[in-house]
């Protein structure tokens, strides 16, 4: 069976400085349909860059990127935009809702992007279905200013899901939320994987990472191919850091110097989802 996503030896170097800085160094990653993957790593380790390459926001300098078996490493801007619309859903830490639009209009924004045209009635139906999926259909006419942080992030998740993407990319989606609200958002995204949607979650929260099928570590641009658990990922002796209490997640400072855990189980059986 063809994997949903395959990265082979992906590299990315930041140019424009005196000495080019390698952000990603030979990243290999495979994600199957319906699979959820958490990526852990300290700040500056290249997590967001990896996500931006997967989401076709940027192009890798080297390596191969296959989506559904098709090589999409070098795409035209137009094709990349079409794939972003059809295949990916994005959730960001800062929600990025447009304040002059209602919740429903913010969700419908993903449908009014020039990639095919839906009549107003169908647009509305799909928008309301997405809002219903995240449990806030009753807030459809509210503007972001009248919504709580959790509600705003659920609107953002609904926007990501409204086109029924094959892969959901979430960059620290709970970073600005309290634990309870964060759990709610994670559950909403995880429920999407039950319908076959892949999920890549970049997070610092151990509990949230625990809910993913696989947990991977990214250190200085190198993705540890071995599957691990969050506990292993943050093991003090392997990561050179203090173990963070469950649910709190490590701070960027405490995560400094984290390295790939030794002896991680590549098959990762029994990791809770």
């Amino acid at each position: 069976m063809t994997a949903l996503l395959e990265l082979h030896g992906i590299t990315k170097t930041l140019k424009g400085q005196r000495t080019p800085r390698t952000i990603l160094d030979g990243v290999d990653l495979t994600v199957e349909s319906g699979e959820s993957v958490a990526i852990l790593g300290r700040s500056g380790s290249g997590k967001s860059t990896l996500l931006s390459l997967i989401g076709l926001f940027d192009r890798p300098d080297g390596g191969r990127y296959l989506l559904g078996g098709q090589d999409i490493t070098r795409l035209s801007e137009r094709r990349a935009a079409a794939l972003r619309s059809a295949e990916f859903g994005f959730v960001f830490q800062r929600f990025f809702l447009l304040k002059h639009l209602t919740a429903a209009q913010n969700v419908a924004m993903a449908l009014v992007n020039g990639q095919g045209w839906l009549p107003r009635r169908k647009r509305r139906a799909r928008t309301m279905a997405a809002l219903d999926q995240v449990g806030i259909a009753h807030l459809a006419k509210h503007r972001p200013a009248r919504l709580s942080g959790g509600e705003q992030q659920r609107v953002a998740v609904a926007r990501a899901l409204v086109r029924e993407p094959r892969l959901l990319l979430a960059d620290e989606p709970t970073g600005a939320l309290d634990t309870e609200t964060g759990n709610l958002v994670i559950e909403v995204m995880r429920s999407a994987t039950e319908r076959g949607c892949g999920l890549i979650l970049v997070t610092h929260d151990r509990d949230h990472a625990n809910k993913m099928r696989r947990v991977l570590r990214l250190d200085d641009g190198v993705l540890n191919p071995a599957t691990t658990t969050p506990d292993e990922a943050w093991t003090p002796h392997s990561a050179g850091m203090q173990a963070a209490p469950s649910g709190a997640g490590p701070t960027p400072e405490s995560a400094a110097g984290v390295s790939a855990p030794d002896g991680a189980d590549p098959t990762r059986e029994g990791v809770p989802r």
Partner: peptide, 16 residues
């Protein structure tokens, strides 16, 4: 800037 980047993120092409 954020709005336009976001629109591109959800599939709006540069041309549009």
């Amino acid at each position: 800037v954020e709005e336009f980047a976001l629109r591109r993120a959800v599939g709006t092409s540069r041309l549009l």
